[in-house]
């Protein structure tokens, strides 16, 4: 039972940790694909979320 609970905890921590890390590393599409010549609009709060 301890191994099972520890496994669940580790999986949850690893998943949340990776989501935070990827959100830090990756830019939102409206930022990544905007240049001085072309501005990509903020996708807003749709299905893919504000950072989609």
């Amino acid at each position: 039972m301890k191994a099972f609970v520890a496994a669940l905890l580790f999986a949850a921590i690893a998943a949340v940790g990776m989501s935070i890390l990827l959100n830090i590393i990756q830019e939102p599409s409206s930022v990544a694909f905007t240049t001085s010549g072309a501005r990509v609009g903020d996708p807003g709060n749709n299905l893919v979320g504000p950072n989609g």
Binding site: A3, F4, A7, L8
Partner: peptide
């Protein structure tokens, strides 16, 4: 061992 079961259940639940 406890570590083997930990790895098994982590992979299984995921």
């Amino acid at each position: 061992s406890a570590f083997e079961r930990f790895v098994h259940w982590m992979t299984a639940t995921c």
